[in-house]
């Protein structure tokens, strides 16, 4: 077997809160920044600060990444801050599984599974797509590192997919 071109690691419990709202509403931006310390991301962007991040998922949906233990509080806090504003804030930490793909071949791993021009994926962009047969979202989370989020029920499938794709050689 060839040397792996990247190391695949489950990222462990990751707090996540889904927020659906009018993203152009100033109250929404204030609540999100208050909860995460991150500025509002533009379309398809992910903004990170101080171990937290906010990702633009669709024109009316954000995904807030926070420490796992803080997620219920963040969801409740958003609901409180946005009382009177039409929105839906839900904790989805346990509905997802997150992996990091680290190494010189991280891009190749993605290129084997996702119909995405990963070579041209800029820092700070989150791309929602599919990994083989399941939905996924990915972004550059560090030097030579890509983070990938999928649904919890298929975590085993996705982990194995990534491991198989990480078998060398490089593309």
């Amino acid at each position: 077997m060839s040397e792996p071109i990247a190391v695949i690691e489950p990222a462990g419990p990751q707090g996540m809160v889904s927020l659906r709202a009018d993203l152009s509403d100033r109250a929404v931006a204030q609540a999100v920044t208050a909860a995460t310390g991150c500025a509002m991301p533009g379309p398809r962007r992910i903004v990170a600060a101080g171990g937290k991040a906010v990702a633009w998922m669709s024109p009316d949906e954000l995904l807030l990444l926070v420490p796992h233990a803080e997620a219920p509080g963040v969801a409740a806090g958003l609901a409180e801050a946005l009382a009177g504003t039409h929105h839906l804030a839900t904790e989805v930490s346990d509905a997802r599984a997150m992996f990091t793909i680290r190494g010189p071949g991280a891009d190749d791993v993605v290129a084997k599974l996702c119909p995405v021009d990963v070579e041209r994926l800029p820092e700070g962009e989150i791309r929602r797509t599919r990994a083989a047969q399941v939905a996924a979202a990915l972004w550059r989370s560090g030097e030579g590192e890509i983070s990938l989020v999928a649904f919890r029920s298929v975590a085993g499938y996705v982990e194995r997919l990534l491991e198989v794709a990480a078998e060398g050689p490089r593309l």
Partner: peptide
């Protein structure tokens, strides 16, 4: 491609 054996189809697992 990779879609064979255990990766033929995604297997969804409950907790």
């Amino acid at each position: 491609g990779e879609a064979k054996g255990e990766l033929f189809q995604p297997l969804r697992r409950t907790p």
